[in-house]
Every structure is written in C-alpha cells, then in structure tokens.
Amino acid sequence: MVEQYNPTVMDHFMHPRNMGDMENPDGVGHIGNPQCGDIMEMYIKVKDNVIIDVKFKTFGCGAAIASSSIVTELVKGKTIEEALKITNQQVVDALGGLPPIKRHCSVLGEDALKSAIDDYLKKTTGKGIEGWQPHEEEEHAH
C-alpha cells in the first residue's frame, strides 16, 4: 500500500503542513461524516479578501492527510476568488499524482477548502458560494 504513494505524498503524510487548530477562524469547513469515512476540517483566516492563514485536521488514510496538507499550501496567500478556482485535479497534480483508488481524497481536499470559504462568505456577506455543493454529499446520499 505504501508503494502506491509517491515521495511527495509520503512527505505530506509524514510532515503535514499547517496541521492543527486555529483560534478565531474566519471560516470553518467540515466535510465527510464518520459513516462515509474520511473527515476533514479546514479553518481559514482572511484579511482584505486574502487567505492569510489556513489550518486543517483530518481523520482518514494517508492520501486524505496528504491532500489536506497540500491544499493548505496551495491556498495560502490567495484571494478568495483565486482559492475558489482550486480543483481536485490541481490537488492531485501538486502531489505528483495519487493512486486511482485514492483520487476521491483530493476531492475531499477541494471540498474542505470550499466549505471553509462558503462558511466565511456566509458570515461576511450572508450568502455562501453560489451553486456550490460538496461532491461527497452527491455521491453519498444516504
């Protein structure tokens, strides 16, 4: 199983970036549920429309942890508009690829970020990301 992960994924799994809690976040994202498995939480701090800090916590496999970690690196310093353009494919590419059966973990990464931005927008503008819904909920309509 370890063989399937490339050195970049292993590096992010072994040394996750921006992992932990955040005091007074401006936006909190929460994706997944215990029945489905992986759970990601993402916290963002926003100043002048720029994501100046980001933290995550993840319950999940190696790919889920690495995906969360790399998302935090991709998003830091970006404007909200730029951050919203981040796709799961960019997550996969930034990790140098994920095994096919683990690609859904990159989707979780994208969704956790968007969920945090959605929360931030709701708090600040009263309206979340237009037309956005996390992928997981479509796929796991229990």
Partner: peptide
C-alpha cells in the same frame, strides 16, 4: 480492517 478505496473508507 479499514480500506480507503473508491469513494469512501470501507469499514
């Protein structure tokens, strides 16, 4: 006992 495959973790 956990396998993270396809779309979700499978217990």
């Amino acid at each position: 006992g956990s396998a993270c495959v396809s779309k979700a973790l499978k217990a």
